[in-house]
C-alpha cells in the first residue's frame, strides 16, 4: 500500500517523454496528469482496504459462530476485559483519525508545518494505543487468560472472585488475541506508513499539487480506526 504512492511520487518521467516531465517531478511517466495519478492511487488504496476488511471478515465470522454457540460463555469471559482501557483506546484512536484528516487538510493547502504537526500527533496517539494495549495484554498474561492450551494454567485464581470462567472461555480469548493482535499489527503497519509520509513531508516532497502520500496514508489509518470501532463493542461490550 505504501509503495503505491512511492511509485507515483518518485518514479520520475523519462526526459522528453511528455514535455510535462519537468513540470511535475512527481508525475510517473505512465500517467497523463497529476489528477489522473492521484485518482489511481486513491482507487488502489480503496481496493486494498476492501482486501483488509475481508481479512478481518474471517475473524468476525468465527466470532459470530462461536458467540452464537455459547452466548453465556462470551458474556462471562468478556467481563475479564478492561472496559476502561478499551474505552480509552477507542477515544485515542478516534482522535487520531481526526488528526490524520487534519494532516490531509493542511497538506492540501500547502501548510508543511501544520501537516508535520498533525502527523506527529497521530503517531503519538498510535503509541498511546499500543502502550495501553501492552498493559492489557500483560494483565491477561498474568491472569492466564490465554488462548487454547495455555488457558487452564491459572484458572483457579478466579475462584476467590466468586465465579469461575467456564472451561471453554479459552475460545473467547483465542478470538480476543487473534482479533486485537491482527489489529495491533495493522496499527504498527499504519505507524510505518505514517512515518514514511512524515519523512516525505519533511523532505519537502509534499506540496499543494502533490499530497497523495498524506491522503493515502490517512486513508489507511482510517481503516485501522474503523476496524477498532467494530472490535471494541464486539469484545468489550458483549453485555
Amino acid at each position: 500500500m505504501s509503495s503505491a504512492t512511492t511509485t507515483d511520487a518518485s518514479h520520475a518521467a523519462p526526459a522528453g517523454e511528455h514535455g510535462h516531465g519537468h513540470q511535475y517531478p512527481f508525475l510517473a511517466h505512465h500517467f497523463d496528469t497529476p489528477v489522473h495519478q492521484f485518482d489511481s492511487a486513491k482507487l488502489g488504496m480503496w481496493i486494498f482496504i476492501a482486501t483488509e476488511i475481508l481479512m478481518f471478515g474471517g475473524l468476525f465470522v468465527a466470532y459470530g459462530i462461536f458467540r452464537g454457540q455459547e452466548p453465556e460463555m462470551f458474556r462471562m469471559a468478556h467481563e475479564r476485559l478492561d472496559r476502561i482501557m478499551g474505552a480509552v483506546n477507542t477515544v485515542v484512536l478516534l482522535f487520531s483519525s481526526l488528526t490524520a484528516a487534519l494532516a490531509v487538510r493542511q497538506s492540501q493547502v500547502g501548510d508543511r508545518k501544520g501537516t508535520t504537526r498533525w502527523l506527529v500527533i497521530t503517531l503519538i496517539c498510535a503509541v498511546i494505543f499500543l502502550v495501553v494495549k501492552f498493559f492489557e495484554y500483560q494483565h491477561k498474561f498474568h491472569d492466564g487468560l490465554l488462548p487454547g492450551h495455555y488457558f487452564q494454567a491459572h484458572l483457579q485464581q478466579f475462584a476467590h472472585h466468586g465465579h469461575v470462567l467456564p472451561q471453554r472461555a479459552h475460545m473467547f480469548f483465542a478470538l480476543y488475541f487473534m482479533m486485537t493482535g491482527l489489529h495491533g499489527v495493522h496499527v504498527l503497519i499504519g505507524m510505518g506508513v505514517l512515518s514514511w509520509v512524515l519523512k516525505q513531508n519533511l523532505d519537502g516532497k509534499i506540496s499543494k499539487q502533490f499530497f497523495t502520500p498524506v491522503e493515502i496514508g490517512a486513508l489507511y489509518w482510517h481503516l485501522v480506526d474503523l476496524v477498532w470501532i467494530y472490535l471494541f463493542p464486539l469484545l468489550y461490550l458483549v453485555g
Binding site: 487454547g148 483465542a174 487473534m178
Partner: peptide, 11 residues
C-alpha cells in the same frame, strides 16, 4: 499456540 478454533477437543 493451540488456539482451539478448529480443534474439536477444545470446543
Amino acid at each position: 499456540l493451540g488456539l482451539g478454533i478448529f480443534d474439536a477437543s477444545l470446543g
